[in-house]
Amino acid sequence: MPHLTVHVLESDLAGRETALIEKLTDAVVTVYGEWARGIVDVRLIGLPPGRWGIGGTPAQAPSPSVTFGIREAAFSRPDADEIVAGLVTAVTEAVVGVFGERVRSDVTVELVGSPAGRTGAGGAVVTS
């Protein structure tokens, strides 16, 4: 299941939640296909001003940061480079589509791989 956690200033997020969830889900679907739509998990974390720092000082207008949880096996596929590039591009475009061009150059998308057997759902370890 693709998990996307987005950190963004609360003031930038307010009123844009639904649009961001929809666009991020669509972004994943453009790479994985329509079958993935129902399993995309998006979590939005709005931070108050002063609670996000860059370079040792509170950030004035940070661009959203996306952590994308993905099965580690995806990085071993023959098409892994295309999957990674496609996800980074599609997720960035989704964020820019909601917040505007001002955020593009600093949007971060971090793909984090989970090895099989290292996560659980419903109280059971997921092995595939």
Rank of each mutant, 00 (worst) to 15 (best):
I70N: 00
L4S: 04
T5V: 13
A59V: 04
S63T: 02
I45H: 12
D41A: 13
W52H: 09
Y32K: 10
T67P: 00
M1V: 07
P78H: 02
R77L: 10
E93V: 00
A59H: 01
A59L: 03
R118H: 14
G123W: 08
D26G: 08
G33V: 05
K23C: 09
I21F: 12
S65T: 06
I83H: 05
F99G: 11
R43I: 06
G120F: 08
R71V: 01
T92K: 09
R118Q: 14
R43E: 01
A59F: 08
G120R: 05
A90G: 09
V112E: 09
E93T: 09
G86H: 02
V95L: 04
S128G: 10
A90H: 06
G46Y: 09
G46N: 06
I45P: 00
E101F: 14
V112N: 12
F99R: 08
G56A: 10
A116D: 15
E82I: 00
V96W: 07
Y32M: 15
E101V: 15
H3D: 07
F68V: 12
I54F: 01
T25L: 10
R104M: 15
T18I: 07
I70D: 01
A116T: 12
G53L: 06
D81T: 13
L87E: 03
A85H: 09
F68M: 12
T18Y: 12
F75V: 03
L4R: 03
R51L: 09
L9P: 05
G100A: 15
A36H: 02
L24E: 04
S128A: 10
F68G: 04
D79K: 01
A116K: 03
Q60M: 07
R77K: 09
T5F: 01
A80H: 11
R102N: 14
L4V: 13
P62S: 08
L24Q: 12
W35S: 11
S105Y: 03
E72H: 05
V103F: 14
V98A: 11
G122E: 05
G97T: 11
G46V: 05
G33Y: 13
A73R: 12
S63R: 07
V42Q: 02
V98H: 08
I39C: 00
V66W: 03
A74H: 06
A61G: 11
S76I: 00
M1R: 07
G123M: 07
A19L: 13
T25G: 14
G120K: 06
R16Q: 13
A73T: 11
V84R: 11
R51I: 01
I70H: 01
I45G: 00
S11E: 15
F75S: 04
T67M: 01
P49G: 06
A74L: 10
S11K: 13
E17F: 04
V40K: 02
G55C: 06
I45D: 06
F99C: 10
I70P: 03
D79A: 04
V6E: 02
A90F: 07
E22G: 06
F99M: 11
K23N: 15
